[in-house]
Every structure is written in structure tokens, then in C-alpha cells.
Amino acid sequence: MATDAALRRLLRLHRTEIAVAVDSAFPLLHALADHDVVPEDKFQETLHLKEKEGCPQAFHALLSWLLTQDSTAILDFWRVLFKDYNLERYGRLQPILDSFPKDVDLSQPRKGRKPPAVPKALVPPPRLPTKRKASEEARAAAPAALTPRGTASPGSQLKAKPPKKPESSAEQQRLPLGNGIQTMSASVQRAVAMSSGDVPGARGAVEGILIQQVFESGGSKKCIQVGGEFYTPSKFEDSGSGKNKARSSSGPKPLVRAKGAQGAAPGGGEARLGQQGSVPAPLALPSDPQLHQKNEDECAVCRDGGELICCDGCPRAFHLACLSPPLREIPSGTWRCSSCLQATVQEVQPRAEEPRPQEPPVETPLPPGLRSAGEEVRGPPGEPLAGMDTTLVYKHLPAPPSAAPLPGLDSSALHPLLCVGPEGQQNLAPGARCGVCGDGTDVLRCTHCAAAFHWRCHFPAGTSRPGTGLRCRSCSGDVTPAPVEGVLAPSPARLAPGPAKDDTASHEPALH
């Protein structure tokens, strides 16, 4: 009773807030009518008042009428009001819900409408889902798969039609296919003929059939049928067999079959498995989609049935006599038709004709302190090069084509190399640097090759510096006499390219 009084008091307290929050009759008014909170006449009256005075006034009048009803109607109103779709449509209802007392429970059932309790003993237990329907569909599909699609060729003596089998029958139906081979029951999904010589313990000319048996419980189990008994694959494991010639990621696949039913060829011909030897223990289905393919039931050349050999690369099948050149017997292992072999060759040939990528240039590290003349020119003028003790990398590039010797140069053309002071002394051009340390401070000019250098860098042994005729380390061993002091540049003949010694390969005349 306390809860009923509290709900009535809360409705009177929030009546105006609810009326202002509800700006549309749908969905709240319609939901109240659906849950029998508002009768039909009051529903029509509220809609009429909404058209006349507006939605807030109409709902305020409806809530005032609701306060005169019993506690069950008020409880049902609060339940409908706080439904998710009403809270989404009328956003101003959320503060009312947040301020609702926590001790007021809106989930209690309506009085007088409590459903009768059902004894637990009368409640049926839930049924577990079964796979009976899938099993029945598999039974119905198996006879259809064994139905012949056409008439065999005159040369083929193997013609068999499976008798119709009602689904209610649980007995196995067997077809006489000759040579002791028996087909599987209607619940078998796949059958492959297997030679009895590969099964340990088999006697006589009995041949087993590799099947997948579907049981009534819905589970499946792969086994071997020899005669009327089934054997699990673990009985046929043979770890010492060295003649297993397995197909790549293979499961067994029928390579020879008669049109209309699988079996042995007439005249004692023995149908073979995809792999010879003992049956392997793992009978998992292969991951290669080509091995799941269903080959055609007629020859791809003459479009006739009979004894066919199936290609492992495509769905086509052929007569042995229709092949070019014809085959006398079934080859062992994987067999592919000429079209598949030709496609494989065409895929391999473009790969062989692809040009080989060019090898990157060989990189040879230079000892610290040495650099090529090109690196000396590329440096920024007026700045010493940083990191001189790091190992430089010199790339061996292809030799350029031989060019004509340089033409003779006048001494005026070499004027930018040297600057003559007032006393006739050779001065260095701006930006000249030593080729060893890279520093341009207090550098000297070689009178023979006009290269800038430090005496301490080229002659670290402490050799005394002569007063005139300074030469760098590369030119100090040259027998050519030094030019007379005061000459602007060496003779043009000295600039012609010539053979250089091994220790002077990195010091070429550089223009500054």
C-alpha cells in the first residue's frame, strides 16, 4: 500500500513536468492505449483535445483523470512512461527518471493478473537440437547421386540401376557391380574402391570401400567397409609401409569409374585409389579445392560414357583410347591431361624469361682521411668538412668512354686558381681547403699541381719545410723540376691526363 501511495503522490508531483515534456501524442498516448491504461473513449478524447488546445494541455488533463483511477493503472502508467522508446522521444523525461526514488519498484506484477504457477513436473524439458533432418536429407541425396545420367557406350558392359529405396527402410541396399565389389548404403556420403591386398588381414578377392557413415545421432565417422563389417581407420595404420605414394595433400579420389555407378572395369580391371599401398590413418579432407572437384561422367573428346580416367587438374575425364597418344593402361600417381600440362608450361616460361635485376654498384670503404676530388669540390665554400675520421664509401662506377685530351690552356685561363699578391707571391683563392683534413686555415699551394695542403698533414714525420718551391706529398717525388717562383700557373702540358701512381689516385688537379 505504501508503494501505491508513493506512486500516486509522484504522479501528482510530476504531472506538469510530464505534460510539458510530452510534445507529441505518439508514441506515449498510443502505448498507453495498447497496454489498456487508457480506454478507447479517453484516447479519442485526448486526441481531440490535443487538436484543440495543444499537446501539453491534453496530457495534463489525461494525467488528472489518471489520478482518479486505481493503483494498478497508475503503476502501469509509470512502466509505459519509462520505456526506452519514450525516453528517446521525450528527452525531458530523463530528469524525472533520475529523480525517481530508488525504493519504488516498478517491476512488480499487476494485482489480480498474476499467472498461475505451473508445477515443475509438468514443464517439459527442453529438446536438444538434433541433426536428424540433415541425416534424412543426406539419405535422400545419396540415391540421386547414384542414378545414371545416360546410357553407357556399346563397348562398356557395366550397366546398373540402383533400385529405389524407401527412406523408412534401415537395411542396406547393395548393387552387384562384379568382381566382388559392393556399394555402400544410402547413408554413405562418398565411396572409393580399395584393393584388398592393401588391407592387412583381408582374405580372398574381397575389396573394401572407404566410406563416411552418417549415424542417426547426427555425428559422422569415417571407416572402411569390408564385406558386411565396418573398420575404423586406426586398424589399417601401417607405419612400416615404404610404398606409400601419396598425392599432394591428398584424400582418396576415384580416378576410374563407370558411368552411372562406381566400380571396377569389366574384364577384371581393378579400380585404383589416388594413392597406392596401405590406407593412410588420417582421412581428413584435403585443403586443395581441386581434389574436391567432381569430374564429368562423359569423355571430353567423344562425349560418351564408359570407363573413364579423370584428370587431377580439371573436371574433365577421358577414354584411354581417346587420348593423344592413347594409353594402354592407367598410369600410377597423379595424372593430368594435356591442357593442364600446357597451362603449367605456359606459367613457367614467362618466369624464366623475366630479366634479372641489375646488381647495385659495389661499394668499397675508403680509409679515414681520404676523399675523392669530387667530394672536395662539392663541399660548401668557406666551411670545414665535419666528421673527417668517419669511413667514407667510394662507389665503383662504370668507366666513362675515352675522351680526347684536354686542349692547351693559356696562363690567363688559370687566373682564378691563384691570386698574385703585391710581391708576386701566389695566394690561395677563397674557399681553398686541405685535401686531407678539410680545413682551409693557413693552407699552402703546391707549386707543381696548384693543390691546397697543410705541410703537417702531408709530411707528418716532421720534415723541414723548404723556403721556396713548396710541393705536396703527391708531387714531391716527381722528377720534373719545380717552376720558378712567381709564375702564375704550371705549363698547360702538365694538365694533360697521364698515368698516375697508386698513392696519388685520389689527388687529381682540382679547380677552386
Rank of each mutant, 00 (worst) to 15 (best):
P233Q: 04
K133S: 04
Q173V: 14
P129H: 01
R190F: 00
A73C: 05
K50V: 06
S249H: 04
P129L: 02
V199W: 05
T183N: 12
D4H: 00
S234K: 08
V199H: 05
W65C: 04
G269M: 05
S169C: 09
P176T: 09
G180C: 13
N179D: 04
Q189M: 00
V192F: 09
S187A: 10
S250F: 12
K235I: 05
D34I: 00
L13N: 01
T232C: 05
V37G: 02
K83P: 01
R12E: 00
P266C: 11
G204T: 10
E40W: 01
D23S: 02
D70C: 03
P129Q: 06
R79Q: 02
F100T: 00
P266Y: 11
K235M: 14
T130L: 12
I96W: 00
A134V: 14
A134Q: 11
S241F: 13
G180R: 15
S187L: 02
A152E: 01
K131L: 01
K42Y: 00
G54P: 01
D34M: 00
D84I: 00
L106N: 03
I181Y: 12
G155S: 05
P162G: 11
D84F: 01
K165A: 01
A117S: 06
T183C: 15
I18H: 05
A21N: 05
V199I: 14
V104E: 07
L47V: 03
S196Q: 11
S185A: 08
D84M: 00
K131M: 02
M194P: 05
R89L: 01
L128F: 14
M194I: 11
V226K: 02
Q108E: 15
Q157V: 07
A258I: 06
H48T: 04
K133N: 01
K222S: 08
S249D: 02
R190W: 02
L210E: 01
P154K: 00
P125T: 14
S24E: 06
N179M: 15
A145F: 13
S195C: 09
A261C: 11
G178A: 04
F100S: 02
R8D: 04
S187P: 05
E137P: 12
T151P: 10
L67H: 06
K131W: 01
Q69L: 01
P143S: 09
D198E: 13
L13Y: 14
G178K: 07
L175C: 07
E167G: 10
H30W: 00
K83S: 02
D84T: 06
D70H: 01
K52L: 11
S24G: 03
L273T: 07
F215A: 05
H35F: 02
P129G: 09
S241K: 03
H60C: 00
A246F: 14
I74L: 01
E167K: 06
G219D: 08
P129V: 03
L146R: 03
L62R: 01
F230T: 07
S168F: 14
I224N: 04
G228K: 07
A246H: 14
L32T: 00
A264H: 15
G268N: 10
P95S: 06
R139C: 04
F43W: 02
Q189N: 08
R89M: 00
L63Q: 00
T3W: 15
E53G: 01
A31Q: 07
G201H: 10
P116I: 14
N179T: 15
G218L: 10
L210S: 03
K50S: 15
D238L: 12
Q69E: 02
W65F: 02
G269K: 11
E167Y: 15
V123P: 06
F230S: 04
D98W: 00
S135L: 10
A144S: 07
R203G: 05
D98S: 02
L273V: 10
P233V: 04
P101I: 01
